[in-house]
Structure formats: structure tokens, C-alpha cells
Simulated assay, not measured.
Amino acid sequence: MTGTFGGALEARGIPAGEGRLSGHVTGEVEKDEGVLVIKRIHVVYELKADAEHDETIERVHGMHASKCPVYRTLSGCIDITTEVRRA
């Protein structure tokens, strides 16, 4: 998902490479009939970008998941959320 978000930023002229964007993932596991199952995943993107790009960053963040193969594969069975923080 980080790659899709970064690629979408780059396509709009917002640099995301060279350590400017990182993703940190937390998963929550529960037992389902005695089997451990991943139920929720939360991704925090840390982004170094100029404030002038805030509106574009929020717009890209709001749509990137629907274009991400990982999200589209897993979202039907795992609740996936994301947020952007300034690094």
C-alpha cells in the first residue's frame, strides 16, 4: 500500500522517494473457532512534504487504497485503515 500511495504522490509532483515516505503497520489478531485470524490492519504513513501539498496529499490518501492490489485483495476479509502523519 505504501508503494501505491507513494506512486500516486509522485505522479502529482510530490516527492515520496529517498526516505520521504515510510509505512508502519499494526495488525490485530483474534481467535476464530480456536484459530488465530488477522482481523484488522492499520497503516500509518509518515511523510516528509511541504505544507503547500497538504490538499493534494489528503486527496491522494482518500483514493489510493482503491487502486492498490494489496488493499483490493485483502479488504474483503480484513478491516484495513490508513492515516498520514507528518514526519
Rank of each mutant, 00 (worst) to 15 (best):
R86T: 10
V60F: 02
F5A: 05
R72S: 12
L9S: 05
L9C: 06
E30I: 08
L36K: 11
E52K: 15
Y71F: 15
T82P: 05
R86H: 12
R20K: 15
G7Q: 05
R12I: 04
Y71V: 06
E18V: 10
P69W: 03
Y45C: 04
K39D: 05
G3C: 02
E18R: 13
I41P: 01
M1G: 13
V44W: 03
G27E: 08
T2V: 14
V35I: 15
H61K: 12
A8H: 07
T56E: 12
S66I: 06
D50A: 14
R40L: 09
I38W: 07
E46I: 00
G62V: 04
M1V: 13
I41G: 02
S22V: 11
D54C: 00
S66R: 10
E46S: 12
A11K: 13
E30Y: 01
V37A: 11
R86D: 06
I80P: 10
K48C: 04
S66G: 06
E55A: 15
G19M: 07
E55Q: 11
D79N: 10
E52I: 02
D32H: 12
D32G: 10
C77L: 05
D32Y: 09
G23P: 08
A51L: 09
P69G: 02
H42M: 00
V60D: 00
V35P: 00
A87C: 02
R12V: 08
V37R: 15
S75R: 14
T4D: 07
V43R: 10
G13P: 01
V70N: 01
T4V: 15
H61E: 10
E52V: 10
A65C: 11
L74V: 05
T26E: 08
A49C: 00
P15S: 12
V35T: 14
P15M: 07
S75P: 04
E28Q: 15
L74F: 14
H61I: 06
T73S: 11
V35C: 07
M63T: 15
E46N: 14
H24E: 14
K48M: 11
H61C: 02
M63S: 14
L47S: 03
T56V: 09
E10I: 07
T4H: 08
E52G: 04
L36I: 02
E18M: 12
T26V: 08
V70D: 03
I80Q: 09
S22P: 00
R59G: 00
T26D: 07
E46Y: 13
R85T: 06
E58H: 01
T2M: 13
Y71E: 07
G19F: 06
I38H: 06
G62I: 10
V29I: 13
A51T: 11
G23Y: 12
C77H: 08
G27P: 04
P15A: 14
E18N: 15
K48V: 12
T26K: 06
S22M: 08
R85Q: 13
G13C: 10
H64D: 09
K48W: 02
V37E: 13
M1I: 12
C77W: 00
E83Y: 03
R86P: 04
V35R: 14
I38P: 08
G76N: 12
E46W: 03
G7W: 08
I78W: 02
G19S: 05
T4A: 13
I78H: 00
V60L: 04
K67G: 03
T82V: 10
E28D: 13
